[in-house]
Simulated assay, not measured.
Amino acid sequence: MTERVIRVGFLIFPGFPMSCLTSVIEPLRAANEISGRHTFAWDLIAEGTEPVISSAGIAFEPSRSLADTANCDYLLLLSAPTSVFAERSSPAHLRRAARHGTILGAISGGVFPLLRSGAVGDAALSVHWCYEAAFLAEFPGVPASDQVIEITPRCVTASGAAAAFDLALHMVETELGAGIATEVACWFQHPMMRKAGVQQMVPVLGEGSKQEDLHPIVARAIDLMARHMSVPISMAEVAEDLAITPRHLERSFKRATGQNPTNYYRAMRMKAARQIVMYSNDTMMQIAEAVGYASSKVLVRHYREAFGISPREDRQRINLTRVKGNLPVPSV
């Protein structure tokens, strides 16, 4: 009897995060070794035939082109958020693969070109918290999931490299069972097998802790602020929604974060603005509107106070470090 082989294709773009690639391949390799079966095989795929330079500056040689993905069970996109298709036919190749039964997916910034391809429809997409503002700015009608991984019958996404490891464990469990998946996790001292439904960890601004460690009142207040970026909410409204006094809100925030809620909210909006500066083509006025500023001049002043650099200078600085082949983002 012929052994079933699951073929995983990795579509890599210039500037792709190398850790996301190895975080999938290594668990699959270990699963083959532990099980004594050749269940998983993988290929590096690119739009062309030239080596692809990762974000670490290391070149990877693709084994085949995107036009030749007929036998892939999974096709996972790995890229920076700013990556664009070099070939006009590439989105059509992805849509064709989806029609013929390939499960499409993306890791970290790969969700951007995946969605731009039009190949995944309204599938749930896991979006890393550091890209969320830029993602919502480019795709305002698409829900960005804050889950570590999202798995649907036709699409799989992982928010980052550690999440990619969890996605690989899911693939191992599906094909070889929970016992092999657990042994793979233990091989790599992976602390736990996170499945769908686990929320991403988000750092608290200015603190060495995670949002999930915060007092419930402060965590709920931050969630309210995050849901009111483009149309800001006042601290009085936050307190009213939480059924506490503004004074109680301020005391709770200072104890938990070392900042008052107004300053914390502004810092959140500045971080969101910086994501859009770095990972989108939006103009300064569009960025201002996305984070709740009626005037781009005020945003620029607050941005400079927060980061010591203007948005225009920040975008130019980021473009200087982009890997060759990654098109620069136009100046704001």
Score class of each variant (00 low, 15 high):
G105V: 05
I107N: 03
S108P: 00
S108C: 15
G109V: 01
G110T: 03
V111Y: 00
P113T: 06
L115T: 06
R116C: 06
S117T: 06
S117V: 06
G121K: 13
G121A: 15
D122I: 08
D122Q: 15
A124K: 13
L125K: 04
L125S: 02
L125C: 07
V127F: 00
H128D: 07
W129K: 01
Y131N: 08
E132A: 10
E132M: 08
A133H: 00
A133D: 00
L136G: 03
A137V: 04
F139D: 02
G141I: 09
G141K: 10
A144E: 05
S145Q: 06
D146Q: 13
D146G: 13
I149L: 06
E150P: 00
I151P: 01
I151E: 03
T152E: 15
G160V: 04
A161N: 06
A162Y: 12
A163N: 04
L167G: 05
L167T: 07
L169T: 07
L169R: 03
H170N: 14
H170F: 15
M171C: 11
M171H: 02
V172Q: 01
E173L: 09
G177E: 10
A178G: 04
G179H: 14
I180N: 03
I180R: 01
A181S: 14
A181M: 08
E183M: 15
V184M: 10
F188M: 14
H190D: 03
M192Q: 14
M193C: 09
M193Y: 08
R194F: 11
V198R: 04
Q200H: 07
Q200C: 08
G206C: 12
G208H: 09
K210C: 05
E212C: 13
D213K: 09
H215Q: 15
A219I: 02
A221L: 01
I222D: 00
D223I: 03
D223R: 13
M225R: 02
R227L: 09
R227Y: 00
S230Q: 12
S230N: 12
S230K: 11
S230P: 01
V231T: 15
V231Y: 13
I233K: 05
V238L: 05
A239G: 08
A239F: 02
I244D: 08
T245N: 03
R247L: 14
R247A: 13
L249C: 08
